Simulated assay, not measured.
Amino acid sequence: MTDDLNVRRIGPESAATVLEIVREAFGSRPPLDPPADALTETEASIATRLALGGGLLARLDGEPVGALILDAVGDAVYLRRFGVLAAARGRGVAGALIQAASEAAVGKPWLRVVAREELPATVAFWTRRGFVQTDRRSPYVELVRPVPSFYEVATPEDMRALGARVATSLRPGDLVVLTGDLGAGKTTFTQGLGLGLGVAGAVTSPTFVIAREHRSDRGGPELVHVDAYRLGGAAELDDLDLDTSLADAVTVVEWGEGLAEDLADSRLQIRITRMTSGADGDDPGGDDHDPRLVEILKLGPRWATT
């Protein structure tokens, strides 16, 4: 049976529930000196924080299992008092909270978190989710991740134009991981990347050859275009020996989520979704009745300050 997981925005009316989650989540961690600030929270202090910036509450099968407080400071939104109940860990709650926080932070370019250096597993948790350390003031470690950008795309021409714009920010060694259903427009987006990079030859789906290489006509990086749809796992991706060209090329992996992340320590993660049901085929519909939503997330140290 599939878990019913949902995350919603909350205010001070949920202070008691958030406090309960914070106390359980932070209380289960190893003792710290000085103790975690979260353990000094009261219902009144949580209510004040929620009144100022709001928060997020995750429910699993109707039960509250995770929460965080949103704290806008300058050009960033800090994720405060991030906690997931022990019984709900490993069931997608943390990822859902982070995704919802990214959506709530639209208008701010950065998400930030503060972790304790005595808890390396916690620091590693944030690092695995694309956060990069930007400051360390013992015993605190600050990490940052860009907020995704969202684009509504109505036509194949618009999708190619978006790909061409993204290409202007790419350089040799960059990895682009493309995700989207069949017909979402992944290859169309890659064609735009090819246009922006000035590569030779038509960019088509590499489904049956797994990978194609396109050289630039103007001295720029090659475009290596990989289709991971038929690959059985990360090991088969490794067998393609892509690391021999990664440093000199822009590598695009369609269907790469969950497979290609270890190819580089940074990546552009791009998700394309239909905003309405549309026709089959790899191009977006030819009119504004089948638009796509393109989410672009910059992950890793390559993108930490750009």
Rank of each mutant, 00 (worst) to 15 (best):
G163F: 07
E43A: 11
G62R: 00
E295T: 14
L79H: 01
D135P: 13
D283N: 13
D4F: 10
R230T: 13
R271H: 10
S102M: 07
E157V: 11
I46N: 02
E117K: 10
F131L: 15
G201P: 00
G95S: 11
E152W: 05
R215A: 07
H214W: 04
S14R: 05
L143A: 10
E254W: 07
Q269Y: 13
Y78M: 11
S245R: 14
L268V: 06
L79W: 03
D288A: 14
P64M: 03
R137T: 15
G196I: 03
D33V: 15
R116H: 15
L70F: 15
H214Y: 08
A105G: 00
L32V: 06
L182R: 01
G95Q: 11
S138R: 14
T179Y: 00
L237M: 00
L79E: 03
L119E: 14
D37C: 06
L268E: 01
V252Y: 13
D282Q: 04
T17C: 14
A234Y: 01
R59G: 08
L85D: 03
G201N: 05
D33H: 15
T155W: 07
K298H: 14
E142V: 05
P156T: 02
Y229C: 01
L193H: 02
T273P: 03
H225R: 05
A100T: 10
A200K: 09
L293I: 02
T190S: 08
E63C: 02
I10K: 00
T244I: 15
E254T: 03
E261V: 11
A124E: 15
D290A: 13
V252F: 13
A58I: 01
S266G: 02
A260V: 09
T204S: 08
L39Y: 05
P291W: 00
R59K: 08
R267A: 11
G173Q: 03
Y140S: 15
R128H: 12
A94H: 01
L263M: 04
V294D: 08
A235T: 15
V114G: 04
L246Q: 06
V226Y: 00
D241T: 04
D158A: 14
G54Y: 06
T168D: 07
A47R: 12
L293S: 06
T17K: 06
L79A: 08
G232S: 03
P156M: 03
A101F: 02
S138A: 13
R128Y: 08
P12R: 10
F26E: 08
V166W: 02
